[in-house]
Amino acid sequence: MTEALLAALIDRTAATIAAEAEALTGLDQAIGDGDHGLNLRRGFEAIAAERARLSAMAPADALHQAGMLLVMKVGGASGPLYGSLLMGMAKAAKAGGDLPAQLAEGVAQVQKRGKSDAGAKTMLDVLIPVLATLQTQAGRPRPELIRAIRQTADDAREATKPMLATRGRASFLGERSIGHYDPGATSSQLLIHAVCDVLAEQP
């Protein structure tokens, strides 16, 4: 059952990034260096290529190995950032943490790696609110919780548009970064939806 779940997560996240790579790169051309979608696609292709091996592992090991693949294959800042997210989640999973605890450790590792926090117009502006929803509403029935997480991710991504970027490449643009969606926040929103899609289909 775990194996099927891991395989489904790999398939859905990789398909999402492949489908949205051009759009993400377009967002990144506006305020970054224009490689976000292509870099992430390379990373998720590497994970998909290891699907059989990864999905046979314990979830904590699969998360760690997937994180390492992103670190080694992406080639931009999103590799270490998403890699740290997954490796942080793996660390908490290994210690017996539940999903909120895993995401909390993953987000903490992204904050550390990126030397950043909420409000800088980055992926953290989606991940931190999603973590808060997961932590505060974990007791709700699964369909309601999934709906709340999707809504949080959408609202949080929307909220990055008027933000002034103070971290990442977009910060070089200063006030010209205002009015654009953040590419990292957008890829985080897309990946959260992909994970929600899979979890919603679970019996």
Binding site: D33, R42, V71, M72, G75, G76, P80
Partner: peptide, 12 residues
């Protein structure tokens, strides 16, 4: 250069 040979950097 990134792992695919484009602009970027490569941990390995």
């Amino acid at each position: 250069g990134n792992p695919a040979g484009g602009l970027g950097t490569d941990v390995g």
